[in-house]
Structure formats: structure tokens, C-alpha cells
Design a protein around this nucleic acid. Structure first.
Length: 272
DNA sequence: CGTACGACCTGCCCGC
DNA sequence: TGCGGGCAGGTCGTAC
């Protein structure tokens, strides 16, 4: 998906609907990853958008009632905001119309994303939120805490970075980029990471993700923020999708870990 | 319990 | 040109 920076960029792009009143809602595809709740239309209609936020890779749209709309973009989900001239295209699954004539469209070819409506006070009790670890950009992310949680882990650090129960927000692209930046091999087992290396890893995590947010999300060549403009970070990938590229005398390699691609430089990423 | 892997989907790109 | 295979930003359920 959209990883943390793309979700953050999407949320920022949604400020155009802040305080706007929903006039109508259309569900064109009842089931995405999960079924869209039946009562969603009644709850959304005539309510106003009161707040927008991100929890890990989840988009939270708070209403001026007691409810919040939750959107996860899966692998290929996008939100676009358009004006009255909107023509529905393939994979536009869910559409919200505003009194202002602005329109919010959820578009998702693979339908791995989902849309939910929950009482705001119960949001943190939802399983998909409850199980999340500390946000990758939270100041509360500490090396000590991560060290304690992975000090017995036989799982390679690349896979650990993708575990949302530990650190939430990192996905497959930024995992490779973060490991390259911190000069840590993706193959290093959790139990073999000294605390000093974990500190380095956290530093790189903040550096890489903040930069990606600043540039408006990356990532994949066709990521667009809600107004349709492309993210700019793609030119900044050092290793992801760069198999064979030479970096300071080392060559980017592609390996498969747990069925997912990892890109890294074996000599540069030597944990020193 | 932690871990490993297939499943869920469509589209695109590559090689034959 | 067409077709089959493999791969793609994520996460969950199941089987050890």
C-alpha cells in the first residue's frame, strides 16, 4: 500500500473536505477486503467532517456525530477528491458527495483495502487498531522497548520491520530503504541486534519516513495524492527496485524473504 | 505461544 | 499478437 508516508500525504490532501457536510453516499462495491457495514450510509449522510487523522496506515475521518469513518488503502487503494464533473471509472468502489459539490472517491483495483464505520469512543477497541504497535514516527518509539521485544526473535529484521504489532507504519518499500540507510543487513536476526544498532535503525526510520512525508509520499510510480498530483520521493529510492545498481562499489541485490522482495547492498549493510 | 505460508484480487510486464 | 507466469504498496487465517 501506501505505506505511512503515502497515508499521511493522503490525510493532508483531505483537508479540503474538513467541516464539509455529506449530502450523499454511494456504495458501488459492497465487499472490499471486508463487507462495508450496512448502516454506513445512514450514519454518514448529513454529518459533517470534524477531524482528519492517521493511525499507522489507517485513515480516520471523524464526524461531528459520535462516529468515525475508517479507511485502509490495502495495496492499491487511493482516495481522490474531485469536483462536480466526476465520471465514475472502473474500481471506483465508494463515493461520498458533499453539499459543496466536492466528491470523495475510494478507488482500489485489488480491493485489499477496507472501509469501516465505528463509534469514535470504541475506535481503539477495534481489533485492527488495538493490535498496533507504536507508530513509526512517534517520539515514544524507543530502542530499549524494541530491544526487549526482539531480543529473543529468530526472525530477520526486515520481517520484523513489517510487523505492525511491533512498529506500525513501515511497509515493504521503506523497510529496504531504512535498512540500507542504517547499514544493517536485512538478514540479521532480531536477537542479534545490539541496542546501538537498534538506535541507528530508529534514527534511519525517522529520517527516511519524514523525508518521504515531506516530499508528498513516494512511492510507486503511480502514487498520487488526493488531488491527483504525483508523489516526488520515487527518485530518492536508494535500493528498492534497483537491483544491479552500483553504490560505492557495492551492487544492489534482490532477495526474497517471506515471499516479499528485499533489496540491499551486502557489503555496505554489514552492521558496522 | 511464535512462526511460515497461502489466500485474497486485478493489472502489468516479460518471455515464448 | 496472444497467452501463461510471476510479481506488485498489506494483512489475515490456518497449520504446524
Amino acid at each position: 500500500m501506501p505505506e505511512l508516508p503515502e497515508v499521511e500525504t493522503t490525510v493532508k490532501g483531505l483537508t479540503v473536505i474538513l467541516n464539509q457536510k455529506i449530502s450523499n453516499v454511494k456504495i458501488h462495491t459492497p465487499k472490499l477486503r471486508f463487507k462495508i457495514p450496512n448502516n454506513i450510509i445512514n450514519i454518514l449522510r448529513n454529518s459533517k467532517i470534524s477531524n482528519l487523522r492517521r493511525i499507522a496506515k489507517f485513515i480516520i475521518i471523524d464526524l461531528d456525530t459520535d462516529y468515525s469513518l475508517v479507511i485502509h488503502l490495502g495495496m492499491s487503494g487511493r482516495l481522490k477528491t474531485v469536483n462536480k464533473s466526476y465520471k465514475r471509472i472502473k474500481h471506483d468502489h465508494f463515493v461520498m458527495y458533499f453539499l459543496s459539490k466536492r466528491i470523495l472517491v475510494y478507488h482500489d483495483p485489488r480491493r485489499f483495502g477496507f472501509i469501516d464505520i465505528v463509534e469514535t469512543k470504541n475506535l481503539r477497541k477495534k481489533k485492527y487498531i488495538l493490535n498496533l504497535g507504536v507508530d513509526a514516527l512517534s517520539p515514544e518509539l524507543s530502542a530499549q522497548m524494541i530491544f526487549e521485544k526482539i531480543s529473543k526473535s529468530e526472525v530477520p529484521i526486515k520481517q520484523i520491520l513489517l510487523n505492525q504489532k511491533l512498529i506500525a507504519g513501515i511497509g515493504n518499500i521503506y523497510a529496504s530503504e531504512i535498512l540500507f540507510d542504517s547499514k544493517i543487513s536485512p538478514l540479521t536476526l532480531g536477537k542479534d541486534l545490539e541496542i546501538s544498532l537498534i538506535m541507528k535503525l530508529i534514527k534511519s526510520t525517522r529520517k527516511i519516513l519524514k523525508k518521504a512525508v515531506k516530499y508528498g509520499g513516494s512511492s510507486i510510480r503511480d502514487f498520487r495524492s488526493t488531488d491527483g498530483t504525483l508523489g516526488n520521493f520515487q527518485s530518492d529510492f536508494k535500493v528498492y527496485n534497483k537491483e544491479g545498481k552500483k553504490i560505492r562499489g557495492d551492487e544492489v541485490r534482490k532477495i526474497i524473504q517471506y515471499g516479499r522482495s528485499t533489496f540491499y547492498c551486502p557489503k555496505l549493510q554489514n552492521n558496522k
